[in-house]
């Protein structure tokens, strides 16, 4: 059986992890490679690195980080944040990333998805979609949810699949940071209307939320940050809980 995936997400700024990491057994809480190794050893199924730096040097720094992770970590990982061209993707994959996550650049120029899929294969193209429910309608937002667009989530999801996306990483702006659970209704709809894997993101607060997003939300994978970084939910305990509740996970 194909198992459901648990994916910790690390925010990276200038090559260091940010937004609070509180691991007692870490020598250096800011070192993404060390954190990645710990997550891999604990049973994380994949990792996502999201680059949020805005400096001139970001490209080289990120490339070096990707290389360091690829050398040391033996599970797949995705890199996202500001990737906007075929050249950007090529650099990340050459450095050893397994997949790239594209968000705003795909909304601004949807043909980019076709170009990337035909050059690198759809398996390494993750399209990240941030959306907010406004008056009952899920609308795509850009720049971490700050900038609204007039694109409807479900239309966009179908379009990115048709253009060659391998996976969709869906973050609900209504749920992100609330710790009240994932946007399961929207996630289940996504799973019905497209035939590529869906990664749920935004809202994880307890172990039950993960179970719910796999069962009610029909998600193929669940991504979270702070609950893992602050050891509120240890990955081995989460996987044991999911298994006990009848969900196939890798243990």
């Amino acid at each position: 059986m194909l198992t459901k995936r648990i994916i910790p997400c690390l925010d990276i700024k200038n090559g260091r992890t940010v937004k609070g990491v509180n691991f007692v057994n870490l020598r250096d809480a800011g070192d993404p490679v060390e954190l990645a190794k710990i997550y891999a050893d604990e049973g994380a199924d994949e990792l996502v690195f999201l680059d949020i730096s805005a400096t001139e040097e970001r490209r080289k720094t990120l490339q070096k980080l990707v290389l360091d992770v690829a050398v040391q970590v033996d599970i797949p990982f995705t890199v996202g944040g500001g990737i906007s061209s075929v050249e950007d993707v090529d650099r990340m994959l050459q450095a050893g990333a397994d997949k790239v996550s594209i968000n705003s650049a795909a909304v601004k120029r949807p043909a980019l998805i076709n170009e990337l899929a035909s050059k690198f294969g759809n398996q390494c193209i993750v399209i990240a979609i941030d959306a907010k429910q406004i008056d009952g309608e899920w609308m795509v937002h850009l720049v971490g949810g700050k900038v609204p667009t007039d694109i409807k989530l479900f239309d966009w999801a179908k379009e990115v699949e048709q253009r060659g996306a391998g996976e969709i990483l869906f973050t609900s702006m209504n749920h992100d940071g609330t710790k009240n659970g994932f946007a399961n209704e929207a996630l289940a709809t996504l799973s019905e209307i497209v035939n590529i894997p869906i990664i749920a993101s935004g809202g994880a607060g307890n172990m039950e939320h993960f179970k719910d997003t796999f069962v009610e939300g029909k998600a193929d994978a669940a991504l979270a940050a702070s609950v893992f970084h602050f050891k509120e939910i240890p990955i081995p305990a989460l996987k044991q809980y999911l298994k006990t509740n009848g969900i196939d996970v890798r243990i």
Partner: peptide, 13 residues
């Protein structure tokens, strides 16, 4: 087939 999500991505036995 279209009975399953394609690509298969993840950990299988």
């Amino acid at each position: 087939s279209e009975n399953v999500k394609v690509p298969q991505i993840g950990w299988n036995t």
